[in-house]
């Protein structure tokens, strides 16, 4: 099994090495990077490229490690017992399987995505140490041990909202998706919009990197915003000339709402544009 990138995903050399190391050594791969640089997409692409099923586990602030293994629905059982249901005699009826259980017992070695692990409680990664390391866990209610027949490819993403514990990190391979340089970015756009005109692409990228340079932006636009914006530009048939200006400070790029999502950031851009216009007026 080797991951070599796909037609719809531009993977850099270092990313390929990290992914393949994680696949070969059967270790989890931890992916960090600015929001919108394609962390979650990566798991989808790995699954597509290897032709394996993808199991997604999206983490929220209320998610517990136990949710990924199984849950014992005691309340349902209690209710059934009050109603005199026959099912109540077998405890197995009340064990709800979690995503990890699914991944461990899947026929085909699957790809398991644990998305945004940093959203969970601070103890969450520690609670998963043993399960991810040995790929097995014990079900107390039925007294059985669930062991992975084939170790799934585990991809974990983090937005850096919380520090992850050392013991957890030591078991992972790590890759930090850096913000792509203009060349890689051009390749990425080409993959998504193959018929985009060269000129428009160049102007759009120029304007995009200038917006990223604007000081004081709360959220710099990232790859996913750029792709959305270009989609709009193409849909609206904006001519490349409209994007051309010496500096972004002189004008607001058309449809800038796709690039900056924060009201204060739009203000900041508008203010700079206003200042530039006034200076030119003098």
């Amino acid at each position: 099994m080797r991951f070599a990138g796909t037609e719809s995903y531009v993977a850099t050399e270092d990313l390929l090495v990290a992914v393949n190391a994680a696949i070969t050594l059967e270790r989890p791969l931890l992916i960090k990077g600015e929001p919108g640089t394609g962390k979650t997409i990566l798991a989808h692409e790995i699954a597509a490229s290897l032709g394996r099923p993808l199991i997604e586990w999206h983490i929220k602030s209320t998610t517990k490690a136990q949710h990924g293994l199984y849950e014992y629905d005691a309340v349902a059982r209690l209710r059934d017992s009050q109603l005199g249901d026959e099912r109540v005699h077998d405890i197995r009826n009340y064990i709800v399987r979690g995503k990890l259980w699914e991944a461990f017992t899947a026929e085909d070695r699957p790809v398991l995505l644990i998305d945004e692990i940093d959203k969970a409680d601070i103890e969450f990664p520690n609670d998963l140490l043993q399960e991810l390391d040995r790929m097995e866990f014990y079900v107390h209610e039925t007294k059985e041990t669930i062991t992975a027949a084939e170790r799934p490819v585990v991809v974990i993403t983090s937005n850096n909202e919380k520090e992850l514990p050392d013991a957890f990190l030591r078991r992972c391979f790590f890759h930090y998706i850096r913000f792509p340089d203009p060349d890689t970015m051009a390749a990425i756009v080409q993959v998504h919009y193959p018929d985009i005109k060269k000129l428009l692409l160049r102007e759009a990228l120029g304007a995009f990197y200038e917006v990223r340079e604007v000081p004081g932006l709360k959220k710099k636009p990232s790859t996913s915003e750029l792709l959305d914006w270009i989609k709009l530009l193409v849909a609206e048939d904006i001519p490349p000339e409209a994007l051309r200006a010496k500096e972004v400070k002189d004008f607001l790029p058309p449809l800038h709402g796709a690039l900056v999502k924060n009201e204060q950031d739009v203000h900041q851009l508008e203010r700079l544009a206003f200042l530039a216009r006034r200076e030119r007026g003098n």
Binding site: D14, V17, L169, R170, F174
Partner: peptide, 13 residues
């Protein structure tokens, strides 16, 4: 490749 590999294996932050 050794550089990328060792980076992925040794650096976690």
């Amino acid at each position: 490749d050794f550089y990328y590999l060792s980076r992925a294996a040794l650096v976690k932050d």
